[in-house]
């Protein structure tokens, strides 16, 4: 049990982003001879991909669309992000939908093991695709400091860092740092 505060605390802009509650690791999927098929002809789940702020101990089909019904609530308090509200287990969730950056798509992959093939070889097939992700916070509104929001910053940084450099680009640039 915790006490409630009356108003919002104003944070100065120079305050560094809050500590993360998530972590990022390299993809050590322990796969050998694996293939992956990213195709766009699967089911389109845009608008129906939700990242919940809690663990649901279930893997499998469920009547999500019957019970989980987000409602749009205009613009939120923070930074003008579009605000949505929904309830899960009687708890209010506040969320926003993040469109995937240009040039990127979302894929729901499923492992498939061809019976005739080697046991060490796996393949991942695309079962569904999506173009946006809606993430939900419990009892605080979405902001640009949220983890998933900032995880997408990496897509922007990766483009700048890993865009191949041509000899012409290198020669024409005046590299003065």
């Amino acid at each position: 049990m915790f006490t409630k505060l009356g108003g919002l605390s104003l944070e100065p802009k120079s305050v560094p982003p809050p500590k993360r509650t998530g972590w990022i690791g390299r993809g050590n999927c322990h796969m050998e001879k694996a293939t992956i098929d990213l195709k766009r002809d699967g089911k389109d789940l845009s608008g129906r991909v939700h990242q919940l702020p809690c663990c649901v101990k279930h893997d499998g089909p469920a009547s999500v669309s019957h019970y989980f019904k987000p409602k749009h609530k205009g613009v939120g308090e923070d930074e003008g992000l579009p605000l949505q509200e929904a309830h899960f287990r009687g708890r209010l969730l506040q969320g926003t939908t993040l469109p995937l950056p240009h040039g990127y798509s979302g894929f729901v992959l499923s492992k498939s093991s061809p019976p005739t093939s080697d046991e060490n070889s796996h393949s991942w097939d695309t079962k569904a695709t999506f173009q946006d992700i809606t993430y939900w916070n419990h009892d605080y509104s979405p902001s640009q400091n949220d983890e998933l929001f900032r995880a997408f910053h990496w897509l922007t940084v990766a483009k700048a860092l890993h865009n191949p450099v041509t000899p012409e680009e290198l020669a024409s640039s005046s590299v003065t740092l």
């Binding site: 993809g27 789940l45 129906r48 990242q51 919940l52 809690c54 669309s65």
Partner: peptide
């Protein structure tokens, strides 16, 4: 390259499908 991102508590609603690992 592959990287993954996970909140401490999180799961997915993928249409009418639930995935525990967020």
């Amino acid at each position: 390259e592959l990287q993954w991102f996970k909140n401490l508590y999180g799961s997915w609603f993928l249409g009418d499908y639930i995935t525990e690992d967020g």
